[in-house]
């Protein structure tokens, strides 16, 4: 007795074979060249990641020109807060300080973004004041020096 192979089987095997070959061929061309050089990723992505524009300079960069402010800040409660937390991204200003202005926040809400009364924040973690009670009508920086909060201006 001859072994019977239904005609569907070889045809389907052919179809699947073609599909898998196509997949492998496509894969060969689609996998990026540097893939797997260091690990399971495209090595060239490391270079890509250095390309985006840098926005933050880090506060060490500020000290070069504003050491006076750092000296004040270091003495008081805001010592742990980096310059750019309040002044925003400063890379452009660092590179070209004459032309590029940096943010200089002033409003009460600005200080409030950290200090406003918030039931969900622990009192011990951050000092809080009621924005609608604490010396209303005046700006915080009219009394507190932002870099040295306890050095009151008046």
């Amino acid at each position: 007795m001859k072994f019977y192979v239904p005609p569907q089987i070889p045809r389907l095997a052919l179809a699947f074979g073609l599909f898998i070959t196509l997949f492998l061929v496509l894969r060969h061309f689609l996998v990026p060249d540097t893939f797997g050089k260091y690990g399971h990723y495209r090595a060239a992505s490391l270079i890509d990641n250095t390309l985006p524009e840098i926005h933050y300079a880090g506060q060490q960069a500020c000290f070069v020109c504003h050491q006076d402010i750092e000296d004040k800040k270091a003495q008081d409660v805001h010592s742990d807060i980096h310059c750019e937390t309040c002044h925003g991204p400063g890379e452009k200003h660092v590179v070209n300080s004459k032309v590029e202005k940096i943010l200089k926040p002033t409003g009460r809400e600005f200080c409030g973004s950290c200090h406003a009364l918030n039931a969900a924040k622990l009192k011990s973690a951050i000092f809080q004041i009621d924005l609608y009670k604490h010396n209303i009508g005046k700006n915080c920086i009219e009394c507190h020096n932002p870099h040295q909060p306890w050095e009151m201006k008046k």
Binding site: P105, G107, A120, K121
Partner: peptide
């Protein structure tokens, strides 16, 4: 208010408690 803080205040208005 600075636009950055404006945005933060807007979205925080839709949240409750500590997130």
């Amino acid at each position: 208010m600075e636009p950055h803080y404006q945005h933060l205040y807007d979205i925080l208005a839709h949240s409750q408690g500590y997130i």
